[in-house]
C-alpha cells in the first residue's frame, strides 16, 4: 500500500465509521463492495461525499461511482487521474 492509498484508507475508515478496522486491514486490490469490505449502496453515497470533501472531485452519478469504487487502488487511481477544484470545507 502506498502513501496516498493509506491516507485514502484512513479517510474511508473515518468517514464510513468502519469500527474495528485499520488501513492495513484493507487489501488495495480487493473489492470495496459486496465481498471484500462488504460495503453497500449507502456507503457508496457516503464515499462520494468523502471524495468530494477531501479531494474536491464530484462523482456525477453512481455509474461513474461503480467503476471508481471498485477497490482502494482503483479509487486512488481515479482520484489521481481527475482534475481538482479546491476541496470543500471539512465537515464541522
Amino acid at each position: 500500500m502506498n502513501d496516498s492509498q493509506r491516507i485514502l484508507a484512513e479517510r474511508i475508515i473515518a468517514g464510513l465509521n468502519l469500527e474495528d478496522l485499520k488501513p492495513a486491514d484493507i487489501d488495495p486490490q480487493a473489492p470495496l463492495f459486496g465481498e471484500g469490505l462488504k460495503l453497500d449502496s449507502i456507503d457508496a453515497l457516503e464515499l462520494a461525499v468523502i471524495v468530494e470533501r477531501n479531494y474536491g472531485i464530484r462523482i456525477p452519478n453512481m455509474d461513474v461511482g461503480k467503476q471508481a469504487f471498485a477497490s482502494l487502488a482503483a479509487l486512488d487511481a481515479f482520484i489521481t487521474s481527475q482534475p481538482r477544484s479546491a476541496p470543500a470545507a471539512p465537515r464541522s
Binding site: D20, D40, I42
Partner: peptide
C-alpha cells in the same frame, strides 16, 4: 455496544 461484544463477530456496517 460494539459488534464483537454483542454478536461475537465483526460487522462492516455496525459502525454507522
Amino acid at each position: 455496544l460494539g459488534a464483537r461484544e454483542v454478536t461475537g463477530s465483526a460487522d462492516a456496517s455496525w459502525g454507522r
